[in-house]
């Protein structure tokens, strides 16, 4: 039995629908990946070209970051899919724990250096 475990299957056991779903999933992956690269390029451009004022660039980049964060987790890392309850729980827990921690750290440390 152990020998056969390394061989590829001659024919897929998936149904037509499942294979269609898989193709659709691949397409979503590629599109979301390209979109995220686009977002990254936009954020870089908004700083480097100097045509955009700083007061606008910072919230703009933060907004792009938030969008990318959402895309990354839900589309690229499949959190939107069914049966991802546990990964969702863990990501949410991490966010809930880390957000107040980061805010507290930034507020508490401030700019004073010891």
């Amino acid at each position: 039995m152990s020998d056969e475990m390394s061989k590829p299957f001659p024919k897929s056991a998936m149904t037509e629908d499942e294979r269609y779903e898989l193709k659709r999933e691949t397409r979503i992956q590629v599109i979301s990946f390209a979109f995220m690269i686009g977002l990254t390029i936009m954020s870089f451009l908004s700083v480097s070209t100097e045509t955009i004022v700083t007061g606008f660039a910072i919230p703009f980049i933060l907004l792009l970051g938030a969008v990318q964060f959402f895309l990354q987790l839900f589309y690229f890392m499949h959190l939107k899919d069914k049966d991802h309850g546990w990964p969702n729980t863990f990501f949410t827990t991490g966010l809930v724990l880390m957000t107040p921690m980061l805010i507290a750290l930034i507020l508490l440390l401030g700019v004073t250096k010891w």
Binding site: M101, L105, L108, L109, K113, W114
Partner: peptide, 17 residues
């Protein structure tokens, strides 16, 4: 290292987190 612009309190925060 505070002399170099670092922050000594940061370690205490990270350590106790």
């Amino acid at each position: 290292l505070p002399d170099m612009g670092g922050n000594a309190i940061l370690w205490a925060h990270i350590f106790w987190i």
